[in-house]
Design a protein around this nucleic acid. Structure first.
Length: 499
RNA sequence: GGGCCGUUAGCUCAGUCGGUAGAGCAGGGGACUUUUAAUCCCAAGGUCGCAGGUUCGAUCCCUGCACGGCCCA
């Protein structure tokens, strides 16, 4: 006859693991102990505790006590002695439990701890004979019972689906993930500091817009019931920021989310973070100089250096960045001079001759864009500013005075990706009206990405906008570069997923 | 949208040329007062992504679907 089981409920797998942990929490409550107490006073961070114990020699114990708290990440039982590793945001430290010093109650409490529990501990700092700085426990307390088991303590969490859907587990298991998001925050605050120091005013403009614009993309549509109208999630803040320039704010920026209703890829998420800046009385060359300085500041803040490693290559973001003329660069990279093929059909044929993909029914400007993406972009690993784009690709940029087919615009590339887009802003309302008309024609012809006209924006321009340099930076892509992460999903905490 | 690959225990992964599966870690019981991927002993844990098909028999072969990854558009 089999002996009665005394080792917990009969369920298997995860339900059983949860039931075992719940039983421990229940047992604590039965003894009048709250497994989720409210606070743990006088805590020091683990980094602070480590600094305090720095001078301790092996086998010695410090005066006084420290109180530390964190997540239990490893346990090594040893009978009447035990070791645990405790981790908080600042680091990791060993807890050293001895029955003669911690007492029977403390050792019993320790027995019921599981990996993943949040615990508090108190005792003098000590260094073991093996040289490991430890808290020589005098008292312990459970601060929050983990009812589910954490990811594997050594192998961690590998499954990309779980890493993205349950990012808290990825953060818990992988210090590198935590570091990437800290680096992101540092880069963003460095950018804000940089702009604030230069007299830029941070503004907030609508994310819910009656008319969207400022980029070529399909928008998300939502509905306002009280106003009985559809509203669009912005695809860019551009047209509102220029209204701020019209109003005389002169230097403005907005750092926040925009939304584009398109596919998901390693460099696209439906919601993404961008920086846009507008500076009155500046042009695109002033903006280029500001960009390279700003990005190198962000790199230093995020990583401590302007040199970053991305896709196995070292990239140095320190200014000055290389400048290329788009037409020249395309001719060098592909052998095709796009100005010599002024019609779509001729350019398409030349591209196909050169082995490039050039789909039927695509206009001249989009073919140029395609040639840029295929022939040039992948080779732009070191930071590069590509200047002077065809007007057809740039409905909000000012024409060059000496060449009306070209606008004062640049895109910045690094790591083979576009990271920024800038131009001298179009401030001639009549020219802008014509560009809107051209967009309307493209829309009519079936281009769902062509944005609609915005009469109020035109009215604003008619009140007079100073000559202005504008900039857009893809913050997520910039952070990819700074943290060496190959996918946008690795720098967005909770990326878009299906169902 | 297309192509390729993946989905097996809580986690990380093996494996089955078609006969319903293993390890390490975690969890349970036990031993251990200097461990640190602690160690040792014992026991347990699986609708092999979902749905069909072929077959005496499918986790394995086929089809579809879902989710994910990479590449292309």
């Amino acid at each position: 006859m089999t002996p009665a089981r005394r080792d917990g409920p009969a369920e298997a797998g995860l339900p059983r693991l949860i039931a075992e942990r719940r039983a421990k929490a229940r047992a604590l409550r039965a003894r009048g102990v709250d497994p989720f107490p409210a606070a743990f006073a006088r805590r020091r961070t683990i980094a602070e505790a480590r600094a305090m114990g720095e001078g301790l020699g092996p086998g010695s114990t410090a005066e006084g006590s420290v109180r530390v708290a964190g997540r239990l990440v490893a346990q090594r039982g040893q009978g009447r002695m035990a070791f645990c590793d405790l981790e908080d945001a600042s680091g990791r430290i060993q807890l050293w439990a001895r029955r003669d010093l911690l007492g029977d109650d403390g050792m019993d409490a320790l027995d019921d701890w599981d990996l993943g529990d949040l615990v508090g501990a108190e005792g003098p700092l000590a260094r073991t004979r093996r040289g490991e700085l430890s808290v020589d426990l005098r008292s312990v307390v459970l601060l929050a019972k983990a009812l589910r088991p954490p990811p594997d303590k050594h192998a961690g969490l590998r499954d990309p689906e779980t890493r993205h859907r349950q990012r808290y587990l990825d953060l818990m298991a992988d210090a590198g993930t935590r570091e990437a998001f800290v680096a992101r925050a540092r880069a963003i605050s460095a950018i804000r500091r940089f702009l604030d120091d230069r007299g830029f005013v941070e503004v907030e403009t609508p994310t819910l817009q009656p008319i969207y614009g400022g980029a070529a993309a399909r928008p998300f549509v939502t509905h306002h019931h009280a106003l009985e109208r559809d509203l669009f999630l912005r695809i860019a803040p551009e047209l509102y920021l220029k209204r701020c320039i019209v109003g005389g704010l002169e230097r403005v920026y907005e750092l926040g989310k925009s939304f584009r209703n398109e596919g998901v890829s390693f460099k696209h998420n439906p919601e993404f973070t961008s920086l846009e800046t507008y500076e009155a009385y500046a042009d695109y060359r002033d903006v280029a100089a500001m960009l390279e300085t700003m990005v190198s500041h962000a790199a230093e803040a995020a990583t401590g250096s302007t040199a970053v490693s991305f896709g196995g290559q070292e990239i140095d973001l320190a200014p000055p960045w290389r400048r290329l003329d788009l037409r020249e660069a395309l001719r060098e990279a592909s052998g095709i001079d796009v100005r010599r093929h002024a019609e779509a059909d001729g350019l398409r044929a030349a591209m196909r001759d050169g082995g490039y993909d050039a789909p039927d029914g695509t206009g001249w400007a989009k073919l140029v864009d395609g040639l840029l993406a295929q022939a040039l972009e992948p080779s732009l690993v070191q930071p590069t500013i590509v200047l002077d784009y065809p007007i057809e690709l740039s409905p909000f940029a000012k024409r060059r005075a000496d060449d009306p087919g070209v606008v004062e615009r640049f895109e910045a590339f690094a790591g083979g990706m576009e990271i920024a887009n800038a131009f001298t802003e179009l401030n001639d309302p009549d020219d802008q009206r014509e560009r809107f008309a051209a967009l309307a024609a493209e829309r009519e012809a079936g281009d769902e990405e062509a944005p609609p006209s915005d009469a109020d924006f035109l009215a604003a321009l008619e009140y007079g906008m100073p000559p202005t340099g504008g900039l857009g930076v893809g913050i997520d892509r910039l952070v990819m570069l700074l943290t060496g992460r190959p996918s946008i999903r690795e720098v967005i905490l909770f990326p878009a997923t299906r169902s």
